[in-house]
Design a protein around this nucleic acid. Structure first.
Length: 183
DNA sequence: GTCCGGATCTTT
DNA sequence: AAGATCCGGACA
């Protein structure tokens, strides 16, 4: 049972917290799929959030974030890694939730802690940018929510001034699969 | 067009 | 502590 469109239309922070425990399903072939439980996320809450890519305005890269909620925003960083986000908030308002770590559930051999590794393990690249997260290739459905949620500052956004200190990273406090991020 | 640095990960 | 390695955004 996939999350409905309205779920994603909520503010990024709320979607982030509620996504903890959700099942991320990736279809890799006719008979192959991989499933992981979301254990770590970060919210990028809007154009005024200096850590959010959309704070630089509407560009080819950030276009998807301005579109309807519930789609994948996939980008490429450091010349080697992909990161997946879930687009949130009403259409026209750019915000998203970065998926940072999964607990492997089905069909996953490689490690899935850290946004780059997560994408590699699930074969997520920019061909999935803009994909509907209620489609067949990649989707999210409700799962087991964590017993305890912890919030910290987001990883790798030191340049974002006061926004760097906001506690918009959320993770399952009891999961061993959370990335050990340096702030 | 050129330059800079990044929502990372692996190796030293 | 640094290297890999590409691309978006800023400025000219």
């Amino acid at each position: 049972m996939r999350f409905p469109r309205e779920f994603y239309a909520q503010p990024a922070r709320d979607v982030a917290v509620q996504l903890l425990g959700a099942r991320l399903v990736r279809r890799l072939g006719p008979r192959r799929h991989a499933v992981g439980r979301v254990v770590e996320v970060e919210a990028y809450v809007g154009p005024h959030d200096l850590a959010c890519h959309a704070s630089h305005g509407r560009t080819a890269r950030t276009e998807v974030m301005f579109g309807p909620p519930g789609r994948a925003y996939v980008y490429f960083v450091y010349g080697m890694h992909h990161c997946v986000n879930v687009v949130t908030d009403p259409e026209g308002y750019p915000a998203a939730v970065l998926l940072r770590a999964l607990e492997p559930l089905e069909g996953l051999e490689a490690r899935t802690s850290g946004p780059g590794r997560l994408c590699r393990a699930l074969a997520i690249d920019r061909s999935l940018n803009g994909a509907d997260l209620r489609g067949d290739e990649l989707y999210l459905e409700p799962g087991d929510p964590p017993r305890r949620v912890r919030a910290t500052a987001r990883i790798g956004v030191a340049y974002a001034g006061a926004w760097a200190r906001r506690r918009l990273r959320f993770f399952d406090a009891d999961s061993p699969h959370v990335s050990r991020g340096k702030s």
